[in-house]
């Protein structure tokens, strides 16, 4: 009786693991393959050609750095925009709120490159093209909705009573935010930030149009190989891309855990039991 659910959950975890890992297997094989003809299950030979190219190219590592840097700034800016917006939208009866939400969520529904093609001319005039700043601004459109959504949901689950309680203990606006609101929002912020980072990392077209070849992120290097039909190098880049994305997520998660641990140190030295 007791064993069964455990067994079941173990099975589920293994299943999930396989589900997540299986798509990577062909990528790994293809990145290392030499002569992999279609009906064969495994390649006939192995070659490090693709990995040598990817790893030895300085551009690869510059691109990794720039990709992460952009994703980080984008996420930070999203946070600064989404926090007050979500707060206002959840807490106050804003008139025309559906319109506001529609504008924020539009980039998810309308392909963002349509709007980006539109702003390309304006960015050109402002001298924002070919700059990291321009790319960051352009990445905000497709990423902000997710950050906004995640934070809004978190806000909705935060009863005003908590802030009222802090107020009654003498906490002004800033302490209230840092002691009550932020800790509650953190998991939501992490979810939003993860999506924001992932989506920013995966932007090709927007980066390409606004960055115009001068802001070279990982997808900019990767795409020509996908469409150009060099599956080995495309696979190697994809794997590298996946690894970077996972590292970014794990890193953020670890940062959150550290934060919680830091605010929870006393638990380790929990001494007197009454």
């Amino acid at each position: 009786m007791k064993k069964q659910p455990r067994f079941l959950s173990l099975l589920l975890i293994i299943g999930l693991f396989i589900f997540v890992l299986v798509p990577f297997v062909p990528l790994v094989l293809s990145s290392l393959s030499f002569g992999w003809r279609w009906p064969d299950v495994f390649p006939q030979g192995w070659s490090l050609r693709a990995w040598e190219y990817v790893v030895n190219d300085v551009r690869t590592w510059q691109a990794v750095g720039i990709s992460l840097w952009i994703a980080l700034i984008v996420t930070f800016v999203n946070l600064l925009l989404a926090l007050p917006a979500a707060n206002a939208l959840v807490r106050y009866p804003v008139r025309g709120r559906w319109l506001f939400e529609a504008i924020i969520f539009a980039p998810i529904i309308i392909p963002p490159f349509i709007s980006v093609m539109g702003i390309h001319l304006s960015f050109l005039r402002f001298g924002l093209t070919e700059t990291v700043l321009g790319v960051v601004l352009a990445h905000i459109a497709p990423t902000l909705p997710y950050m906004f959504r995640a934070i809004m949901v978190s806000y909705q689950t935060l009863s005003v009573d908590w802030e009222d309680q802090a107020r009654m203990l003498g906490a002004g606006a800033m302490p209230r935010f840092f002691h009550v609101v932020l800790p509650h929002l953190l998991p939501g912020i992490l979810a939003g930030a993860s999506l924001s980072v992932l989506i920013s990392l995966s932007q090709y077209l927007i980066t390409f149009i606004i960055g115009a070849g001068q802001v070279v992120t990982l997808p900019i290097l990767l795409f020509p190989f996908i469409s150009g039909g060099d599956p080995a190098i495309a696979s190697a880049y994809s794997l590298l891309y996946g690894a970077i994305a996972i590292m970014a997520l794990v890193g953020m998660d670890a940062a959150l855990k550290r934060y919680y641990q830091m605010s929870r140190v006393p638990q380790q030295e929990k001494g007197v039991k009454p």
Binding site: D164, Q165, R167, M168, L169, G170, A171, G172
Partner: peptide, 8 residues
Amino acid sequence: PESRKFAM
């Protein structure tokens, strides 16, 4: 409220 020196 935060300056009234009340508690709740």
